[in-house]
Design a protein around this nucleic acid. Sequence first.
DNA 1: AATGAATGAGACTTCATTCAT
DNA 2: AATGAATGAAGTCTCATTCAT
Lengths: 225, 225, 225, 225
Amino acid sequence: MVELSGINKGRGVARNRFENLDVERREEILAAGAQEFMVRGYAGASLNRIIEAADISKGQLYYYFNDKEDLFVTTVEEAMRRLLEAVGGLSIDDLTASTYWDALRELGRQSAALRSGDCWYVRLALSFPRLREEREAAAAVRPALEWARRLTERFLARGQELGTVRRDLPMSLLVELTLAVDEAGDRWFMDHHHEYDEDGMRKLIDARVDLTRDMLDAAHEGWDR
Amino acid sequence: MVELSGINKGRGVARNRFENLDVERREEILAAGAQEFMVRGYAGASLNRIIEAADISKGQLYYYFNDKEDLFVTTVEEAMRRLLEAVGGLSIDDLTASTYWDALRELGRQSAALRSGDCWYVRLALSFPRLREEREAAAAVRPALEWARRLTERFLARGQELGTVRRDLPMSLLVELTLAVDEAGDRWFMDHHHEYDEDGMRKLIDARVDLTRDMLDAAHEGWDR
Amino acid sequence: MVELSGINKGRGVARNRFENLDVERREEILAAGAQEFMVRGYAGASLNRIIEAADISKGQLYYYFNDKEDLFVTTVEEAMRRLLEAVGGLSIDDLTASTYWDALRELGRQSAALRSGDCWYVRLALSFPRLREEREAAAAVRPALEWARRLTERFLARGQELGTVRRDLPMSLLVELTLAVDEAGDRWFMDHHHEYDEDGMRKLIDARVDLTRDMLDAAHEGWDR
Amino acid sequence: MVELSGINKGRGVARNRFENLDVERREEILAAGAQEFMVRGYAGASLNRIIEAADISKGQLYYYFNDKEDLFVTTVEEAMRRLLEAVGGLSIDDLTASTYWDALRELGRQSAALRSGDCWYVRLALSFPRLREEREAAAAVRPALEWARRLTERFLARGQELGTVRRDLPMSLLVELTLAVDEAGDRWFMDHHHEYDEDGMRKLIDARVDLTRDMLDAAHEGWDR
DNA sequence: AATGAATGAGACTTCATTCAT
DNA sequence: AATGAATGAAGTCTCATTCAT
C-alpha cells in the first residue's frame, strides 16, 4: 500500500485538540473550510467566512488550528485520507494480463460510488490540481497529488510489465494524461449524474473506462493506418 | 471560424488609454497581471504586486483599467485573442476520413510551436480551467473556455460524421476528456521541454497525438477482448 | 408621542457589540464621529481622523460598525434619540388657547437648558439640515428631520384649531419657517451664551419665544396698516 | 452700497485666463462646480466629476484655476456678485416709516423673480449657510454671508431708527433670525413653485413678507396678552 | 493654449492573528 | 476550554495636483 506522507507534522497541541472534538463539529468545520478553499482558492479564502459557515468562534478556530495554513493542510489531508480509505484495496502486484483491465473497470465503479455521495472531500479532491497552481497552497496539496501520481505510476508500470499498457510515451507524461482524463471524467459525472437513470449511468461508467483503456492500450502502440 | 464573444465591452475611456499605450509597456503590464493571476488566482492576486512587477504607479493602473476585474478581463481576453490568432486556420468542414487524424497531428504541432515561445498568454490560458473554479473569476474566463469547447465539439462531431470518432459516449463528456488530455499534455510539455532535443521532442509530440487518436478512434468502439 | 422610525435596522452583530461597550468608550466614539461629520460633512469626513480622535484602532471601528455609513447612521440616530428624550413630554392635544403660547415658552426654556449642556448630540442635530443637502447623507438624516417636521406640524395645526395660529400660509411653509427660525436661534444662543449672565439670558430666551409667537400669531393675520 | 470684499485676491494669472474665456464655457464650468459643491460639500466634491460635467480637460481646469479652493472661491464669489447685482438697488437710508414695509415687500418680489430663473448661483447661494459649517469651506463663504449679514443689519437698524422694527432682541440675533426665515422661505418656494399658478404665487409671496413683518414689527414688542 | 498621462497620499475596508478574560 | 475584543498591515480604489508634450 502506498503511504501518504503528510507534511502536516508538528502541528503541536492543536492537532490533538481537533481530533478529540466530537465528529459532527469536526465535519462542520472541515466542510466549511473545504467549501471556502474550493471556491476562493487558498489566498482568497476568508477565515471569517469559514467560522461563520461552521458556526464557531474565532477563538475556537485558533484553538484547533495554528493558522490558516494549518486549517488548509488539515482539510486537504483529511480529504486525502478518506479518499485513500475509499479507493484503498487494490493489490497492484497481483494483477495479471487477464485481470488488468477488469481491475481498472472496478476502480471506475468504486470511484463512481464515491462520487455519488457528493461529500466535501470528493469535491475538494477534484480541486487539488487547481489549488496546486497557487504558490502558497502548492506545498499542502503536493503530497496528495504525489500519492495519486505514484499510485497511477505503479498501476501503469505493472501494466507495461504485463504488456498491456503502451510504452511509446514517457511514464511521467502517461501518468499526467491518465490523471487528467480521470479527473475530467469525475467532474463531468458530478455535473451530469442527475441526467441518467441508474442503468444508463452504469453503462456510461463502463464506457468511460473503455476510453481510458483504449488510450492506454499497448495494442494500438505504433499502430498506424 | 468560431467567434470569441468578449464580455469586456463598455470599459469606457480606460480601454482606449490602454490600447494607445506603446507595445512594450502594454506587454509588461499584461505579463505582470497574467503572472499574478496565474499564481494566486483572481481573489488572491494583489494589485500592489502587479504594479511593482510592471513598474508602474498605482494611479497609472487605475488610469488604464477601471478596477481589478477590468484588468483581469482584459488580460484574459487578450490571451484568448492571441491564442485564437495562433491556432486559427483549421477548416473543419473540409476534413475527410483520410485527412482527419493528420489534421489533429498538425494541430498538435502548431500547439507545440506555440508552447515553445513560453509566452505569458499560453501559460495563462492553461490556468483558465482553474480560474473558472473561482466564483468571481468564472465569468471572465467562461467565454474563452466556451470557445475552446465549441471548437472541440465541432471537430469531434465532424469526426463522427466521417466515422472516425467513437460514438459510445455523450458528446459533452467526450469534449471534456479531450480538452483535459490536451491541457495536461501541454502542461507536461511546458515543464519538460528542456529534457529533450529537437528530434526527440518532435517524436514525442506526434506520439502524444497518437494517444489522443487512440482514445477517440471509432475503430476501438465497443471493441472487447 | 410621535415615533422616530429609525432606518438603522439590521446592522447585525456590530450593533450589539457597540451597545455592549462601556459608556465612556461609546461616548468618545460617538462624539468623535459627530464632531467630524459636523465639520466636514458625510463625504468629507475621514474615518482616520475619527479613530484618531476617539483613540481606537481601525479594526475596532470596523468591529463596532459595518462601514462609514453605519457609523454615521448610528451617530445621527443616537443624537435624535437623546433629543427626543429631552424634549419629549409635551401633550399637544391637551393644549388650549390660553396655554398655547405658554407651552411654546416652556419648550423654548427646555431647549435652552439642553443647549447649555453643549453636548455633541445637540450640536450634531443643528447640522442635520445641512447634512440633508448631501446626497449620500440625506437618507440617514431624513427620519430625524421628518420627526421634527411632523411634531412641529402637529403643534401648529393644534394652534390653528384653537385659533391662535395664522392660517394665511400653507402649513408646510409655516413648518419650514418655524423650524428655520428655531434652528437659527439655537445656533445663535450656542455661539453667544457666554456673553450674558443668567438673568439676562433668561430674558433673552423668553424674548426669542415672543418673536416666534409674533411670527405665528393669528391675531396679525391679514392685518394691515 | 455695501461692498463685497472678496478674499479671492492674488489668484494670479489664472484669474485673467478664466475671465477672458468665452461666456458659455465659463458658465458651464461655474455651473458644474456649483452643482458639485452644493451636493457634496467642499471636501466631498470631486474635480474629476466637475471636469466631466463641464466637459473640459483636467489641464484646462488647472489652467484657469490654481487649485480646488480657487475654483470653489471663484464659484462662490461669482454667485455672490450676481446676487448682489440682482438685489442691488435698495437705498436704505432713504426709507421712511411709511415706505419701510413696502420696501421689504418689494425685496420679496425681487427675490421671487430671481428664484424663478432657477439659476445655479441662486441655488448655490442657498447652500452658503451649510457650506459655512465645513471647516475648509468656511473662509470662502464667509465674505458672502458677512455681506448679507451687514446688509440685513443696516436694513433692520434703519427700521429701528424709524421705530418700525422691534428693539427687544440683540441686533445680531435679529439678523440671524431674519436671514434664516428668509432662506427657509426661498428654499420652500424653490421646491413648491410648480404647485401654484401665477396669481396664487403672487399672493403667497406677499403673505410670506407679511409674516416677516409680523416677526419684526415694533408694534408687537413687549406686547402681552 | 491645451492635453491627458503620471503620481503618491490617503480614502474605506477586510484580513489573519493575538490575547485578556 | 472558549470567547470575542483588539490590532495593524495590506487590500482596492479615488483624489488633487503636476508636467512633458
